[in-house]
């Protein structure tokens, strides 16, 4: 490792060698849109919105790369908003909007890139899911249970529990619901019940204030993973 110098949109910055371009650009205040990125999980470059134009020689051959996974090195020159970058983002956004017109925030972002009337039509059968995979990675890498995954391939690809059946390992924590950028995952709560991915979870009451605050399975999972005693897990965030 070591410090290197690179240029972003003509300005010079220093960074660690092999640091990802997206991280450097964000730190230096550049706007790069992302849909499948979250600092807490691994990077897969699915959405292709974070593309930038990279070149190694002034006036030399350039390449469109995803900044979330592109490692920086001495002399790298990056453009975050070139004509080609905008073209890829615009087409990607138009394609996503055609797939999931209702997805949260998508229409606004698409409009910023000049997507007007959607020429590809509007689908109704994908809900709001753009297949960014954040829920899958969060369940696996943060929660550690792998209740969610992909099924099938290509256009038929879907996200959800194994074989699209209610999962026996899901703890009902709702992390996937919170991390989903488009509002596709539905979680409802009523009384002592939480419903998500086709399963109903019993909620535990806070031993102090009496409000339902977490599914029983989730508390047991935390207990089994961290060794924190169950009685210490019986308080909600406010009362702790």
């Amino acid at each position: 490792m070591g410090k290197i110098k690179l240029k972003i949109d003509g300005r010079e910055f220093s960074a660690e060698k092999d640091e990802y371009v997206l991280d450097i650009a964000k730190r230096e205040g550049f706007e790069i849109p992302t849909y499948c990125h979250n600092d807490q999980v691994s990077r897969e470059a699915r959405c292709r919105l974070c593309v930038v134009e990279a070149r190694w020689q002034e006036g030399g051959h350039s390449r469109i790369v995803t900044s979330c996974l592109y490692p920086a090195d001495e002399g790298l020159m990056v453009e975050t908003n070139s004509e080609q970058v905008r073209l890829v983002r615009r087409v990607v956004l138009e394609l996503l909007l055609a797939r999931t017109p209702e997805a949260k925030g998508l229409a606004e972002l698409a409009a910023e890139y000049g997507v007007g009337k959607n020429r590809f039509g509007a689908d109704t059968d994908f809900g709001k899911c753009i297949l960014c995979g954040l829920c899958v990675r969060t369940c696996r890498e943060v929660v550690g249970v792998e209740a969610l995954g992909f099924r099938m391939r290509g256009v038929l690809k879907q996200v959800g529990p194994a074989f699209a059946e209610p999962s026996s390992v899901c703890i009902g924590c709702g992390a996937c619901y919170f991390v989903c950028p488009t509002g596709h995952i539905i979680m409802t709560e009523k009384g002592d019940e939480r419903k998500i991915w086709g399963r109903t979870f019993k909620m535990e009451k806070c031993s102090k204030c009496g409000r339902y605050f977490a599914p029983k399975y989730q508390l047991e999972w935390i207990n089994s993973q961290t060794g924190v005693a169950m009685d210490r897990l019986s308080l909600c965030q406010d009362c702790k």
Binding site: V88, V91, V92
Partner: peptide, 11 residues
């Protein structure tokens, strides 16, 4: 198409 990235899958 494996369906991982948007341009290939949706395009």
């Amino acid at each position: 198409s494996c369906g991982k990235c948007v341009p290939c899958r949706e395009g």
